[in-house]
Nucleic acid binder design. Structure first.
Length: 601
RNA sequence: GCCCCUGUAGCUUAACGGAUAGAGCAACUCUCUUCUAAAGAGUAGGUUGUGGGUUCGAUUCCCGCCAGGGGCGCCA
């Protein structure tokens, strides 16, 4: 179903052309106040000002006169007559449209019939989009910043899919580099191993502390690694000799030195197993896990092969890309130690990704601190191969900041993602003792997800458990609860044997003759907006718009529910149908946020 | 020093250049014999950091200033 908004826009465009001979693409928007109708356009004011109509044509002496002339033209269209019950002109020159009851009821029945299809469109025309997100580094903690990333990434993927894109989810993880060297060095300290022994790494593997961790669950293993990383980082910063040793260790990791390969492999796997359990818990599945360890050699080769043609250059024994030629800045791609940096690795990654998933676009969902880095890296990729031009995109999102102090895994004060999910669940179980295990997990994950998605993507989240993970008001559980209410009504109606049949003509004619309550009309009008919100959220990668919409819809439903009886009412058919349609839209919307809706709570 | 981002009610925040700046927490009043009160109704709370400019119209765009955050060659 094409949205009624687009249809009206087209007719409006044609009407304006007929009337004035001017080509303009008019846009309808939703008035913030319901009083001004379902759609509104400022096109008359734009025509008047930008196109200089007042000078050209004296017929339209004022904006209002022009707007009235446009409305008169619109009233010749049968689509307008069928879909709109009223069009008004409002100072200083808005044209406001009201959708007709007939259209709204038809839409409601359509929603009930097509179920999870409502909201989907083909507007992205099977565009191949690679979405790269999550990127936790092995040997480090999976903190709430990663959690925001993965929650955001998953929702964006679902929104793009709902708009017809062909999406592949991938994850790129740092399993080599200085942070790994720091973690392994920290491990050495935590296990009190003797670093003077050439085979210290294999000694650690037999160490009893490590053996004990080996028997722990994956969360405990990950926590242990996190502790090692923090310890190693401190040594790196505070002890000169430790720093030198870590640098040597790093070089050994890059050269796949057999003396540390087994330890590296084992601890790396600990991290990956742990990450896997989180992906499962939040409902994300990656098509492909990329690792820095598999791209750094290719990256190095690519960089070196483009020194002669001048794309990269030698400087102070390192290989750099001179972004200053493009108004950017210089960056090191290969260090003087011969290690491939993050930048250099990306050259290998880009080519590998394009080979495996020939994409129209790749979205890197990464924090804002890397904006400058990505600009340089993308420019370098462009220079090497024009195929990357305008396809690589950095989708930035804000930090998750602790109210008191900064979160840093280097300093060891991080809130882990797992802890947050568990804590949310604990509180839910405490408050709602009768709730079963499965539902409380859904509600916990939903509350955490919603709390991260309701903010604008780019804004930082000031995190504190009390404020952030709310279970009431504008929260995940509020939406889930509204959905559970709709389903409760539907269940009761089945017991009373008063099912709503979408193909019953009697019923449908009856619906159109009802006298509507204001709360019912507001709900009907709101249902229409869903398809547009899904489009807009995908277009601007902004799940928060969908959150706002769903919260608003749920509020309207709760008000309706409070004020009116559904099943014991003369308007039972309408109200039941409305309840079903609202439930369906909330469910579809929650799915796009990555939140599952429970039938009961 | 240069570059980028942010500043809205006590707190957390929303608002394609639109109409009376909209919510949620927290505070204070009310509403369960009812299809789930995890809800609903109401009261109070704002010079949208600040000073200019563009516009019929600015939280939104432009410039200055103030405050906070991030980045700027061997980390990722």
């Amino acid at each position: 179903m094409e949205s009624v908004k687009q249809q009206i826009e087209l007719i409006l465009q044609k009407a304006i052309k007929d009337l004035t001979g001017l080509e303009i693409v008019p846009k309808l928007s939703h008035p913030s106040n319901q009083r001004h109708g379902d759609y509104s356009t400022n096109v008359a004011m734009i025509l008047f000002k930008d196109k200089g109509l007042r000078i050209k044509d004296k017929k339209y002496a004022t904006i209002l006169k022009l707007a009235e002339a446009i409305v008169e033209k619109l009233n010749n269209s049968s689509l307008i007559i069928n879909h709109c019950s009223q069009i008004e002109v409002w100072p200083p020159g808005f044209i406001n449209f009201w959708l007709s009851r007939n259209y709204l009821i038809t839409l409601m029945i359509y929603i009930i019939r097509v179920k999870e299809e409502y909201g989907k469109s083909e507007r992205l025309g099977n565009k191949k989009i690679l979405v790269e997100f999550a990127h936790p580094n092995t040997h480090k903690e999976f903190h709430i910043g990663h959690l925001r990333n993965i929650i955001l990434g998953e929702s964006i993927c679902r929104l793009l899919e709902a708009n017809g894109a062909n999406v592949n989810r991938v994850n790129y993880q740092g399993d080599v580099g200085l942070h790994v060297a720091k973690a392994l060095f920290g491990l050495l300290r935590l296990c009190h191993a003797d670093q003077t022994q050439p085979d210290w790494a294999s000694q650690i593997l037999k160490n009893k502390i490590l053996k004990r961790v080996q028997d722990d669950n994956s969360y405990q293993k990950a926590k242990f690694l996190g502790k090692a990383y923090t310890s190693g980082s401190k040594s790196y910063e505070e002890e000169k000799s430790a720093k030198a040793k870590i640098i040597v260790l790093n070089k050994k990791i890059y050269s796949k030195d057999p003396s540390i390969l087994p330890l590296w492999g084992k601890t790396r796997q600990w991290s990956l197993d742990y990450f896997d359990s989180i992906y499962k818990r939040v409902g994300t599945q990656f098509k492909r896990l990329y690792f820095e360890s598999e791209v750094y050699e290719a990256g190095k080769k690519i960089v070196l092969s483009h020194v002669d043609d001048g794309i990269f250059e030698k400087s102070d024994n390192a290989i750099i890309f001179d972004g200053e030629k493009f108004g950017l800045h210089k960056r090191v791609f290969i260090t003087k130690e011969g290690n491939t940096t993050y930048e250099g690795k990306e050259m290998g990654l880009g080519h590998l990704q394009y080979k495996e998933f020939p994409f129209d676009e790749v979205l890197h969902i990464v924090g804002p601190e890397q904006a400058g880095y990505f600009r340089v890296v993308f420019k370098a990729l462009d220079q090497i191969d024009a195929v990357f031009k305008n396809k690589e995109k950095h989708l930035s999102y804000g930090f998750v900041q602790l109210k008191q102090g900064k979160m840093s895994s280097r300093m060891g004060n991080v809130v882990s993602g797992e802890w947050l999910l568990d804590e949310a669940k604990l509180r839910i179980r405490k408050e709602f003792k009768k709730m079963d295990e499965e539902t409380s997990e859904k509600v916990a994950v939903g509350s955490v997800k919603y709390s991260m998605l309701k903010f604008a993507r780019e804004s930082n989240i000031q995190f504190s458990f009390e404020d952030s993970i709310s279970l009431e008001g504008n929260s995940g559980p509020y939406l889930q609860y509204a959905y559970a209410r709709t389903q409760s009504v539907v269940r009761k109606s089945e017991i009373l044997n008063s099912k709503f049949e979408t193909n019953s003509n009697d019923q449908n004619t009856k619906l159109k003759n009802y006298k509507f309550e204001p709360e019912e009309v507001l709900l009907l009008r709101s249902l229409n907006r869903f398809q547009e919100v899904v489009m807009e959220s995908a277009e601007t990668f902004a799940p928060n718009l969908l959150c706002n919409y769903l919260f608003d819809l749920s509020q309207k439903f709760n008000l309706f529910y409070q004020k009116h009886k559904i099943l014991e009412s003369e308007n039972r058919e309408l109200r039941l149908a409305l309840t079903m349609a609202v439930g369906q839209v909330i469910k579809n919307g929650l799915y796009l946020l990555g939140i599952s809706a429970s039938e009961r709570m």
